[in-house]
Design a binder for these strands. Structure first.
Lengths: 198, 198, 198, 198
DNA sequence: AATGAATGAGTCTTCATTCAT
DNA sequence: CATGAATGAAGACTCATTCAT
């Protein structure tokens, strides 16, 4: 008696998730090339061969992880649709960024590592550039709204800060004072200046 | 007439440099694991076997590159010995950092990539942590001198900015407005606040 | 109302046939080793697992195909039982051979390919030798009857012609002038010589 | 002290030949797909890895074998350039064909097997067709010269005979009376008909 | 010092076969 | 009877490293 389609679907989804989770952890910590299919299988608790029932190659696993990461990123950006106050948006973006870092440190680690070595994978380079430009556009727009003298450079600066914090957190882990940094960035960069002063 | 010993030494040194330069470029762009000894030899214009006359393994080449990078870093830090004004020091550090980025982008790329994936190489992790702490100590000291309310967080912030800029430049190359960023950072973070402000 | 046993039997037989037909086509065109169980299942329109309800291994499928081919061959040979005139028999054999080629090209292709590489399967070699000898015996007998000076070599020659035609047809498909060849062979080799001249 | 270029060349040539000889034997007897690189290495008395110093893939080994076979074939055809008498040419071609069979049985076996399963390798199909047509052109030409009523079919017939003999010899080996067949074919097909008689 | 042929362990990937349902 | 998820052994290929010359 054959399994019902839903049963198969469940099995498939479960295995797929196990593979992606294992791969993410290994890719993030050891790098794509240094991670063997064997080790992914072992960590996922399945056999080597089964991986190829779900992904046609090691590279496709990485791409699937990227797709997931993208979806999360797009979800976050969609939250700001209704908001008008640029400072409010920046505050939210900052908080979301830190939230993402806390929850998905490994995505950050992997994305950053890959983006540093675009030769690792063909399309990756373009992909990263696109994401970067998209972000810059949004940030530059916000700075224009608040009358910044040099919105583009300001946008680059705040982006650099996010990247730098992300890098620090990825490298040091919980030794990095993520909360303090978040508070500071919100105070310094996401709050309208008081009466006089910058 | 046989070569004098110094000539031999010179030749050796030249070959060593060629190997290191080739390896740096390849490691930085393609990653350590994706770079073969063969490709290093080809780029260096020598034979595969000869590399093993200079380095006992692929890993030792990477370590040699790290050592070189460290020396450069230490050299830079030694420049500030005589200086007293913390703003002056910060300005110099900023300028030196940008200078290093411009001249040695590949070092930055490689160091960052490796530091993100500490499992790649055993010792690397410690090594990175040490360098980070050393830098933080200096920066925290400077912020204390200028009476910053939260010197540690301020030091982390400026470090994050440097890291973020470095990341951006490594990723985008000459599309990244390095000069504009340098100017901005010097203005905003390395200059004493005017009368009232910040 | 449950199916009657014969109905089950029919279904079984139908699945078996589908599998054998799919396997024959794939084995013939791509070779035994290059054909996967998966691809046979797909072509037969059933699941991979089901194949193992009918055949205990991939090799057994090949053997079953061979058995079928043998049966066909034996059937054909049995037609000649009542005939006496050796030319008539040769004519019939020629026509049957061409008929078989037209209808069962894939059997020929597969049998020939396998027979060329006896190491592919243990028993295959013997099996082929037996079939060959059987054929030669019959042909040699016929040539003896018609008083050929060298019946064995004549039998080899006509066998070679059949094999060569088969090879050509398998390779070229419908570009091969099968009809013209049949006519020619019947004229030249299956017709008693006229008084004078070839 | 490095080896001289000629020494390297010698080594390379020797290894290359060993690989090709081993591969030919295995491909011919077991088939391309059933032959592992490991087994080729073992038979050649070298390591698996070394094979990839000489051929970039298993398929390239097969192609190299084909190239060799082609050269031999072209060499043979070039012998007939000066000859005028069509019977003389046919006699020579027959003798050369049998000579080739005796000396290079494995080439024949491999070529025939591959040509039966063109899906094994992409280009192979075309390649075989070309060779076949070339041969047919020559043979048809000869039959036209001697005033044959149906030169194309006659050419196909003699080709079929050669193919059939080749097949028989490949399958039966030294049990196949190659000499007797050669004699017979020369008598029957390469000799001008006597006034009266067969 | 220098070369590149040679080795073999390790990696990705395929696929016949098993099995829970 | 039927399904396809799961396994693991085997195969193609890569590459750090060694070594004869």
């Amino acid at each position: 008696m054959p399994r019902r389609p839903e049963q198969f679907e469940e099995l498939r989804e479960k295995s797929r998730e196990k593979i992606l989770a294992a791969a993410l952890e290994l890719f993030a910590n050891k790098g794509y090339n240094a991670t063997s299919i064997e080790s992914i299988a072992k960590k996922a608790g399945i056999s080597k061969g089964l991986i190829y029932n779900y992904f046609e190659s090691k590279e496709k696993i990485l791409l699937a992880i990227f797709d997931d990461a993208m979806k999360v990123g797009d979800d976050i950006l969609s939250h700001y649709k209704g908001l008008k106050d640029p400072y409010e948006i920046m505050r939210r973006m900052t908080m979301d960024t830190f939230e993402f870092l806390r929850k998905k440190k490994q995505y950050c680690q992997l994305l950053t590592a890959i983006s540093l070595q675009p030769h690792v994978m063909g399309d990756m380079g373009d992909f990263i550039d696109k994401a970067f430009e998209k972000n810059m556009k949004i940030m530059t727009g916000l700075y224009k709204q608040i009358g910044d003298k040099n919105p583009y450079v300001s946008a680059l600066l705040i982006s650099a800060i996010f990247d730098g914090v992300s890098l620090g957190y990825c490298m040091l882990g919980d030794n990095y004072p993520l909360n303090a940094m978040e508070k500071r960035i919100i105070e310094d960069y996401c709050t309208p200046p008081k009466k006089k002063g910058k």
